[in-house]
Design a protein around this nucleic acid. Structure first.
Length: 155
DNA sequence: GCCAACGTTGGC
DNA sequence: GCCAACGTTGGC
């Protein structure tokens, strides 16, 4: 089971939105590297749900992949912000995966993540990183969950 | 294939 | 609102 990190802006779609929606297509990814990571995702994988462009940014919960990659329908919708006129319906350019909430985490801010030695190599914290979908090692994933649970007084 | 211009991301 | 980083586009 692979581990991932998904970024979302909480003003647009935060972890609470995912909880309310129960499941959601992860639409709007328009970056090839991020798309390729989504294509590697399998049902049952877990992902850290990260709030970007937030005050403060940080980790809000755990999501699970409930359906692997398939074409993102918003690429064909002219009314969508994510419409891509260059995407050929016979050979769709962009995919999404379907995610569901697993469980919320005690909030860990970006500053707290930066202070964790286990995340020294994590792509999330790499300088200039803008990828919205990225892989985590098992150790990185476990360290984030453990740190959030410790902060929340959960053992 | 190079690279300058431009747009977007995301922290601050 | 600013700006650094970086991906994409398009002229050549």
């Amino acid at each position: 089971m692979a581990k991932w990190l998904l970024k979302s802006e909480p003003d647009v779609f935060g972890y609470d939105h995912l909880v309310a929606a129960k499941r959601e297509g992860w639409d709007g990814v328009r970056n090839y590297q991020a798309r390729n990571f989504m294509r590697e995702m399998k049902r049952g994988d877990r992902a850290i749900f990260y709030h970007s462009n937030a005050k403060p940014p940080g980790v809000a919960g755990i999501a699970k992949i409930v359906k692997g990659a398939e074409p993102d329908p918003t690429q064909f919708d002219p009314d969508s912000d994510y419409f891509d006129p260059k995407s050929d319906p016979d050979d769709p350019r962009w995919d999404w995966v379907t995610v569901a909430p697993d469980r919320p985490l005690t909030f860990l801010s970006l500053d707290e993540l930066k202070a964790m030695p286990e995340l020294a190599e994590c792509r999330l914290l790499a300088r200039g990183n803008r990828l919205s979908v990225l892989p985590l090692t098992d150790d990185e994933f476990d360290a984030i969950v453990a740190a959030a649970d410790a902060k929340g007084g959960r053992s």
